[in-house]
Design a protein around this nucleic acid. Structure first.
Length: 901
RNA sequence: GCGCGAUUAGCUCAGGGGUAGAGCACCUGCUUCACACGCAGGUUGUCGCAGGUUCAAAUCCUGCAUCGCGCACCA
């Protein structure tokens, strides 16, 4: 507080960033006012897992949302960015189970359901807020007063009432089906939670004896011999001539020994293996269907954890599936039934969370027939909901067209318990029943939001719902306390404006939210979906904690600041394709923050406090001032159109280019001419005023990208009134050049453009003669226009010259380097400037080197032409080189001549 | 197998029918009184390959290759 005026030399992002975040919170800047009359803008956050830790993907995703939210606020909209977390069934439960095992050596079954859930809640209270705090560190302007959790009481009621409604409608049913079973998490999974991975495995060829002809064997290929004990048939293609006479006969399954039928089914590929498929209806989706069709027996030989059960026979019981695979093969070999084993690569489905191969398994599960499929598909197809990039439309459409019923039950404890109760005395029978839906749910079944009144007489279904069965309600269930109820928030902010998420959850979440939106609120849930890029490391690998290639954003923020990280990532990231993360990008973001900081510091060092309301007569503005002001207007226009198309990287680039290149490198440098002691105070004032106008507008425009530093500078410079924030300041609708005549702008820009270009040429001339840093050179200009004469001071400063002489009609002197520019001819007399001898020696040496190269190439070409027969492209390459070296030699010779002259 | 992307400077990426771009890296100078997280200058590309359309193609079209992703899978 002792030095309120001057900005400190080193920018300290961390202190500044945490300070401002707290001030915004205290100022309630993030609150989305549902009673406001302003146009609404809303986003619901893709709720991170409550167990989650912030990673680079979150940073990108949430920075985009924050940029959108902050921009919308500054455009005068009333903004709601609604935050929250997801209970993330399997992920959270496994995390707590892991902790239990590690710390107490216990499993969840040791504690029992209730105690285990207490543990999870406790864990959630303790660690669940980490990612939220991290989002705050990033600067996210979420309305924290509205933070939601998918297992909040209100939210849970929503889930149960939606279940009840869909059950009553007949869309939810229970049935014994083939599902994806995770043998590690011991639960069913949806198709979306299974990831196919190519695996190196073996194809085992074995032979089954024909029951009625012991001398004949049928050869069968399989990748899964361990399921052999569950074989209840073999199948061939009905058109396969090789096996036509076998259909309807039987083969002998070697162990446990049994006769199983040979059936004919179209599904069999004649080309593959031997054209014979062993049918294991309990352990393969296709086999299950074949089994159903042909009335084959279903024998499950696995336990839930994919060890083998008693059906597999005593020698295999209790054995792991992969061990059993080898043991079965060995046994077949002993029996002389194994023909050969081939290496084979096939796709194996893995559990997304537990990362183990899933087992197709028949079990009793709850399923949902999706509601409003057509509305959802149409909304996206005809752009009522806009997908960006648009190509995701196709992916979405394809999934919608092939949509399958959703297995929504999970054999977990952490989650929304299925709101179904069975009458106690009949519970066992009802739970074992083959199927159950609203039509056959009699008085012995109760489905509802609240437990039945005489709860003691009822037993609740033991399963919980898939996490996504709660997430799909997120856009509206977060805005209103109960289904069917209205709320001011919902009225004001639903449907939401934008959704920002990764394309990897397009089916898990986006598609389902659209269907839920139509079904439960009769409206689409959002108007635009922006799919972010997937961030990879330099080697192209997906960033992940397990791969160890995922940097901790908190470390990055400590080192480079949240603003630096935000800017760096936004600058490269979201163009719709994958992006490779490189810490250098973040470094550049930090550098930009420092550049900004110092440019402002430079302004402050010129003294004269900023008067936010000051104005200057347009006639007092220099051409440089007009030029930079016009560029601010251009910038504003370009940004607006980039925002329209969600081109975030372009936005960052525009901001960066404008400030660093146009403002600092050119305008500020030229402005230095106005800060000498002898400068006319009015000129000086006009220049300072221009700097202030540009800075003021630029800070506003940059704010969504770098909220903290811009807010800090805004305050330091005194642009806002006390108690006001940059983040809640509205973007002015007027151009910064509003009161400057158009023709004046046009001519100023033309002049400045020519002048800057000429400066570049002058710098080139200097550099060519080794004068790069010398400031004592003299430039002579034979001007092409009258106005040039008045600008010599600035040309001298920009080009680094002691003197710029205007000499109309200057006589060309042999040997003086010249450049032809838009402001006239520029001469650089070398006399006395260059150590002629040394420079000549240097250039001569360089010329000789070039000449040597030229000679070499000449020789090569001669050789190629007359002696060897080099490929055309080599000859061409050498010709190109020849031309280049020739030009270089010529150039150097001219320079040497200039020195001599 | 089907679909979708990508392929541009050493690296990360923009661009897009008319002279090939940025930042980083690299080289040369600068302890220039805002900034070395900086300033000035410079080097660097058969724009994946092959055809086609065009006065003109890195850009549009077709095919191919490589990499990546999604969907479907043959046990």
């Amino acid at each position: 507080m002792s030095e309120p005026e001057e900005i400190s030399k080193a920018y300290q992002p961390e202190a500044v960033e945490t300070k401002w975040y707290q001030r915004w919170l205290d100022g309630e800047c993030f609150h989305g006012d549902e009673l406001s009359d302003d146009e609404a803008y809303s986003i619901v956050i893709p709720p991170p897992n409550v167990t989650g830790i912030l990673h680079i993907g979150h940073v990108l995703n949430n920075t985009i949302q924050d940029v959108l939210a902050r921009r919308a606020r500054m455009e005068g909209k009333t903004v709601l960015w609604l935050p929250g977390t997801d209970h993330a069934g399997i992920a959270t439960q496994s995390k707590v189970e892991q902790k239990l095992r590690k710390e107490d050596g216990k499993t969840r079954h040791d504690l029992g359901r209730e105690k285990f859930l207490d543990e999870v809640w406790e864990w959630k209270e303790k660690h669940g807020g980490i990612i939220i705090e991290q989002l705050k560190r990033l600067g996210c302007s979420c309305d924290w007063g509205r933070e939601r959790f998918t297992m909040d009481e209100d939210y849970s009621r929503w889930v149960a009432s939606v279940f009840t409604e869909l059950f009553d409608e007949g869309l939810i049913y229970r049935g014994k089906r083939m599902v994806n079973w995770c043998p590690k998490s011991l639960t069913a999974l949806s198709d979306e939670e299974v990831i196919m991975k190519p695996r190196k495995s073996k194809l085992y060829y074995m032979k089954y004896q024909l029951a009625d002809d012991p001398k004949t064997f049928l050869e069968i290929a399989t990748t899964r011999p361990e399921t052999l004990m569950g074989d209840t048939g073999v199948a061939v293609n009905p058109n396969d001539k090789r096996y036509a006479d076998l259909i309807g006969r039987k083969v002998i399954r070697p162990f446990p020994e049994a006769e199983i039928p040979i059936v004919a089914d179209d599904h069999i590929d004649i080309e593959f293996g031997t054209g014979v498929l062993k049918v294991t209806p309990a352990h393969d989706k296709a086999d299950f269907e074949i089994g159903l069709k042909h009335g084959l027996e279903i024998i499950d030989v696995f336990n839930p954890d994919a060890t083998l059960n008693e059906n597999a026979g005593p020698e295999f019981e209790g054995m792991d599936r992969f061990e059993a695979r080898e043991k079965v093969a060995e046994k077949l070999e002993e029996m002389g039934l194994l023909v050969r084993v081939e290496d084979y690569e096939n796709n194996v489905g893995f559990s997304e969370r537990a990362d183990v191969p899933i087992e197709p398994r028949i079990s009793m599960q709850w399923f949902l027939k999706y509601p409003c499929v057509e509305e959802a598909a149409n909304a996206v197809a005809n752009d009522e909901i806009t997908f960006r990039p648009g190509r995701w439309k196709k992916t979405f459409a394809h999934w919608m067209e092939n949509i399958q019923d959703w297995c929504i039950s999970r054999q977990l404890w952490w989650g929304h318990r299925i709101p179904v109760w069975y009458r106690k005395e009949k519970a066992e029978a009802l739970q074992a029943a083959e199927s159950l839906d609203s039509k056959i749910a009699g008085d012995d079944i109760y489905v509802g939001v609240d437990p039945p009144a005489d709860a003691d007489n009822w037993v609740q279904d033991g399963d919980v719902l898939d996490t996504w069965f709660s997430s799909w309600l997120w856009p509206f269930a977060t805005m209103t306390p109960a289904q069917g109820e209205d709320s001011e928030t919902l009225k004001k902010f639903y449907p939401t404006t934008d959704l920002v998420t990764g394309p990897d959850i397009i089916f898990f979440w986006v598609a389902r939210m659209i269907m839920a939106g139509f079904r439960f609120e009769n409206q689409l849930p959002f108007r635009n979906v922006f799919f972010t890029s997937i961030i990879r490391d330099k080697g192209g690998k997906k960033l992940s904690k397990s791969a160890g290639n995922s940097p901790d954003p908190l470390d990055l923020m400590r080192e480079y600041g949240a603003d630096g990280m935000r800017f760096g990532l936004m600058r490269i990231a979201p163009t719709g394709t994958d992006v490779r993360y490189d810490e250098d990008q973040v470094k550049e973001g930090r550098n930009f923050a420092t550049k900004l900081w110092n440019a402002i510091r430079f302004r402050q060092m010129q003294g004269t406090a900023i008067d936010a309301d000051a104005s200057v007569e347009p006639s007092a503005l220099s051409i440089y001032a007009i030029d930079i002001l016009a560029r601010v207007d251009d910038l504003e226009k370009d940004l607006a159109s980039a925002y329209d198309e969600y081109r975030f990287n372009e936005l960052a680039q525009l901001l960066y280019d404008f400030f660093w290149n146009n403002y600092c490198d050119w305008f500020l440098e030229s402005a230095k001419a106005d800060f000498g002691d002898d400068t006319d105070p009015a000129v000086r004032a006009a220049t300072l005023h221009t700097m202030d106008r540009v800075t003021e507008r630029f800070l506003m425009l940059l704010h969504p990208y770098m909220p903290h530093i811009t807010e800090e500078l805004w305050e330091n410079l005194g642009f806002g009134k006390p108690g006001e924030f940059l983040m809640t300041t509205l973007l002015p609708e007027t151009k910064v050049t509003a009161d400057i005549p158009a023709d004046r702008i046009k001519s100023a820009r033309q002049q400045v453009g020519d002048l800057y270009e000429a400066v570049g040429r002058a710098r080139n001339l200097k550099a060519e003669y080794g004068l790069a840093a010398r400031k004592d050179v003299v430039l002579i200009i034979d001007p092409s226009a009258d106005w040039v004469a008045a600008e010599t001071r600035i040309i001298a400063i920009l080009a680094g010259a002691a003197e710029v002489r205007i000499e109309p009609g200057h006589e060309v002197v042999q040997g003086v380097p010249t450049a032809l520019t838009g402001i006239g001819k520029i001469y650089l007399p070398l006399e006395g400037m260059v150590d002629v001898e040394a420079e000549t020696a240097r250039l001569t040496k360089e010329r000789d080197k070039a000449a040597g190269e030229l000679k070499k190439v000449n020789g090569k070409l001669a050789n190629e032409n007359f002696i060897s027969r080099a490929p055309d492209e080599v000859v061409q390459e050498n010709r190109d080189r020849q031309r280049e070296w020739k030009a270089r030699v010529g150039e150097l010779e001219k320079m040497i001549a200039n020195l001599a002259g």
